[in-house]
Design a protein around this nucleic acid. Structure first.
Lengths: 189, 189
DNA sequence: TAACAAAACTAACGCTTGTTAGTTTAACTT
DNA sequence: AAGTTAAACTAACAAGCGTTAGTTTTGTTA
């Protein structure tokens, strides 16, 4: 039986607050109050505010990186790869919709080491996506728009999905996947 | 000859800093330092930090509202209306790319009155856009996906455009408009 | 040049921030 | 029941925050 540790609980509560108000606006006292303890008690479980942020963001970034690498290595067409990427985004969004806010809005508040690691992962991710699209265009599966514009359009939608997923009553995952694939793929095929 | 007032200069400098680090992270001393003056001097021109934020956001929101109402009132097809909306977004993005960061990321830090006004404008805007899409579906001009999914997909892309416009060397406005219309419209038509 | 207004300055305020040190309580293990 | 450890507590710190009051500098007009 897996019980969640106090540290994990702090991170979960912090994610929710960061989602609502942003990293800089949420104080350690805010997080503590939400857990019915005092701010100083948090330090029995974590090293500081900064650590909470990097745990949230880097763990998620890892998830995206691993997912993307898996898709890239599969022996399927470019369009199918794009579909898989979309489905991965939907899966992660559904499971971590609150943590995604920090990744999207507060990554610039990471410190030196972590910031560099995050930016690297992000760039690699985009580069992998870009390659898939180019490969699809070369194979004649995807319309020959500027790859950059296609990449931007799809990624923008996927990255903002967590906002809409929260706002409108958490639709069924499979329906959501189907809708996203439809709207995002049909336009470029 | 129109010279910009000191107040306008403060707002311009603040916009740039908010774009880079976010409203909460930027202090009045940061803004002052960027202008080579002391923080207290800012108060000769503005009433407070909060006023800077609301001037930035509400002025932009007004711009969107007016633009949308103009499009809605035109006697053209739904698809043409969507095109006009996309072009309006591109125009505003090009002219106010830094101020757009505050509107997108820091609107929740507005206070009571201003916050209510902003949310109202935003909702009205989305509702107008939604109506255009539904009208297009009814007229058979737009594919019969869920209107909400189409709305979300297009708006996400447009709202994030300011990030990409800054990152990749400020492309020519007309080319950008053409690309955006292509990618966003062809998928739903 | 004297007068005036605009816009800078210094100094300080009350408050909140993240974090630490040291102590007490609560919950298991033996 | 005694001992041990995890996790809470109180109290305080140094630094940074937005803002105010009062003063000095700067630049323009009479």
């Amino acid at each position: 039986m897996k019980t969640i540790s106090r540290k994990e609980e702090i991170i979960r509560v912090a994610s929710r607050l960061f989602y609502e108000k942003g990293y800089k606006t949420v104080s350690m006292r805010d997080i503590a109050t939400a857990m019915n303890i005092k701010a100083a008690s948090l330090y029995n479980h974590i090293n500081g505010k900064q650590e909470i942020l990097s745990e949230i963001i880097l763990k998620l970034a890892e998830e995206f990186t691993v997912g993307m690498e898996k898709v890239v290595s599969e022996n399927i067409s470019a369009i199918e790869k794009v579909e898989k990427v979309i489905e991965m985004h939907v899966d992660i969004t559904v499971n971590y919709s609150e943590a995604l806010a920090a990744l999207n809005n507060d990554w610039m508040h990471l410190e030196e080491e972590d910031l560099k690691a995050f930016v690297k992962m992000r760039e690699d991710y985009e580069e992998n996506f870009r390659k898939i699209i180019k490969q699809g265009i070369d194979a004649g599966e995807i319309k020959a728009y500027h790859p950059e514009v296609i990449l931007f359009s799809i990624l923008s939608t996927l990255r903002t999905l967590y906002l809409w997923y929260q706002k409108r009553g958490k639709i069924d995952v499979n329906i959501l996947k189907k809708d996203m694939v439809s709207v995002l793929i049909k336009g470029i095929k």
